[in-house]
Write a protein that binds this DNA or RNA. Sequence first.
DNA 1: CTGTTAGCGCTTTCAG
DNA 2: CTGAAAGCGCTAACAG
Lengths: 337, 337
Amino acid sequence: MTTVNLKHLAKELGLAVSTVSRALRDSYDIGDDTKKKVMALAHKLNYEPNPYASSLRKHKSKTIAVIVPEIANNFFSLAINGIEDVAQEKGYHVLIYLTHENYAKEQSITRYLQSGRVDGVLMSVSNETNDIQHIHALKQKNIPIVFFDRVCDNVDTTKVTTDDFESAFKGTEHLIEQGCKNIAFFSVPSFVSIGNKRMLGYEEALKMHKLKVNPNYVVYDTNNAEENLKQVKRVLSGKKRPDGVFASVEKLAITTYHACNELGIQIPKDIKVISFSNLNTASLLNPSLTTITQPAYDIGKRAATILFRSLDKKNATIMNEKVTIAATLIPRDSTRQ
Amino acid sequence: MTTVNLKHLAKELGLAVSTVSRALRDSYDIGDDTKKKVMALAHKLNYEPNPYASSLRKHKSKTIAVIVPEIANNFFSLAINGIEDVAQEKGYHVLIYLTHENYAKEQSITRYLQSGRVDGVLMSVSNETNDIQHIHALKQKNIPIVFFDRVCDNVDTTKVTTDDFESAFKGTEHLIEQGCKNIAFFSVPSFVSIGNKRMLGYEEALKMHKLKVNPNYVVYDTNNAEENLKQVKRVLSGKKRPDGVFASVEKLAITTYHACNELGIQIPKDIKVISFSNLNTASLLNPSLTTITQPAYDIGKRAATILFRSLDKKNATIMNEKVTIAATLIPRDSTRQ
DNA sequence: CTGTTAGCGCTTTCAG
DNA sequence: CTGAAAGCGCTAACAG
């Protein structure tokens, strides 16, 4: 099976290679009848242009790299899903690179990408990353980068993330609308960026609705399931038992579920629970659990769209801005699914 | 930032382009001192060879395509993880294409790949796929394919899948070793390939250990959670209550969990439960649940290894064989994690 | 409207 | 051991 190329087509048609090349794309400039003939033969012979030849010539590869710490993680999988959808639509190809949260790997990947294999990069940095030389090196080679989820604040480019504040606000408001007046907040410690933003959203919603912020209702994840359960049970069996729980991370929603089971508290009859969730594990436990799902797919899609927009222009410039996307709240009723 | 290439290096060193090119790889054939000088400058100027030029010249791209129906699915994510790990190690690049279970998309992707953009393909076919013209077309272009998980039986190439029979056998045996004598089997219908294979493994294990196969202990998924729960409860509250449950799919393990809750049956005290699982959702419910996890990562790794092995040889030939990988059984104790 | 020509950056004979 | 030259397949001036 000899691979068919422009020269073949040209010879077979008695035309010049360039004519065939143009007929296959340009349209205007080439006779209508020749165009048809060329197309017909190309199709008949199953001609597929060699992308490497064309990339070499045009200095454009119609390919982007996606660099993520992991893929066995619902969030990144969904993000890649969004990215790939946009890519397919725009005719781009997607190379995947995993860093496994390893800075050295991240470095060698970005270094390699200076070769010009890709036109642009979508990236979630590893949690080891604090030096950003390798990222600047890429930018210097005019390879645009868009960050998503795990961003580098001190790089001038677009960063696409979840709107944690807004989402926590909406989630809290949802509980309030359901009639909750005493809402507990179970979270990761506030020195974690998302923990803090979500906490602020929660508090803001309470204030907005003139509800008191009760520090006794707050439990922070201790990385110890036994201890978490104890804390949660303490709050749920206190004098003034909360009528709502906002779990800022899924793990604590599950803890809440177990605690309620042990204490004989019914969800959602006695207490309404809402939780941030990527895996939706929690909602399997109790279908009545309302979840706030991170907009992973949309984040990927958005980041990709921004990147492609810039790539398709001549002057590939990307704004230095933060784009936040609100999570979606999925209310669940109490009928078993 | 002008991109640095061989010509630059050559000029700067007063050498010929070809010499520089060889110095950068060949080693033997080039003077040791020139080699060092070349290396040094290349490193200093951050030289990265243009992969497209070299691909064009060598007709090898060091790139493979991975075609999967979805990625927002733990199995495929893990498989891709395995693939990427091997790829990185072998110096290959990984292009991702999603079909969304859409045959037309799968066709257009494979068609495009005839362009020679990739050296080989790893693929899980869409569940719409029954025609295999597009796959043969690829093979005709000498682009090797290895199937994983979702295979095409009637294509001559290697297929890597889970060993469902073996895994179900081992899982059942595990329950037996724990002292179970009456083991229920909750499964997808047996006309589904995996359902059937797992069922056979379960039965074989029972026979092997001289236990009776009791048809009353079998429940098939009905795609209706209400009904499933009813069936499972019926089995669990029957006259001769099983002392073990083999859930062939995770969903039914969760159903089992709920049923036990409602019936006041304790896991694992009264009844031992084991389940096939990808998400490990079930084990979050009850940490004492033993799971059988599909070897997604290993399947990806294995498939990739087979493909690369063939690509790295001159005569890229792939055996027509089935490779099955046994799932891993993860026993869990009853201490809360 | 079509053909000729000159490369993109790299590898690979073939000479020396 | 090193250099000159051809060419991978395609595109983009530049002619005509």
